[in-house]
């Protein structure tokens, strides 16, 4: 087990890239800034399960976005949130 790079409460940016194969980051979340809500376990990388065994095991996080930041035309409360799971290799520290 490796130590998590990020901790709950930390601001992170979700990478904006689109590999040609299967991956688990929806387009709407790419390039967005989020806050780490929960550090989860280590799992195989979805990208590496295509004809492979998923290695290396990689830390997974549950991250939280503010709906009003995510969707410019969001019709709802400023309180509303969206959570999704993102692997560590898709996250980078967010500054500011």
């Amino acid at each position: 087990m490796t130590l998590p790079l990020y901790r709950p409460g930390q601001r992170v940016r979700i990478a904006d890239r689109t590999p040609a194969t299967h991956h688990r980051v929806p387009a709407y979340a790419k390039g967005q800034t989020a806050v780490v809500e929960r550090v989860c376990g280590e799992h195989g990388q979805p990208e590496n399960f295509i004809r492979g065994n998923g290695e290396p095991l990689t830390r997974l996080y549950r991250v939280r976005l503010l709906q009003r930041e995510l969707w410019p035309d969001y019709r709802g409360s400023h309180l509303d949130k969206l959570d999704l799971e993102v692997f560590e290799h898709w996250l980078e520290p967010a500054h500011g």
């Binding site: 904006d16 689109t18 590999p19 991956h23 929806p26 387009a27 709407y28 979340a29 790419k30 969707w71």
Partner: peptide
């Protein structure tokens, strides 16, 4: 928004 990565990438 980034382009969907395939026909399955429906969110939003």
């Amino acid at each position: 928004m980034t382009q969907p990565s395939g026909p399955h990438d429906l969110g939003g």
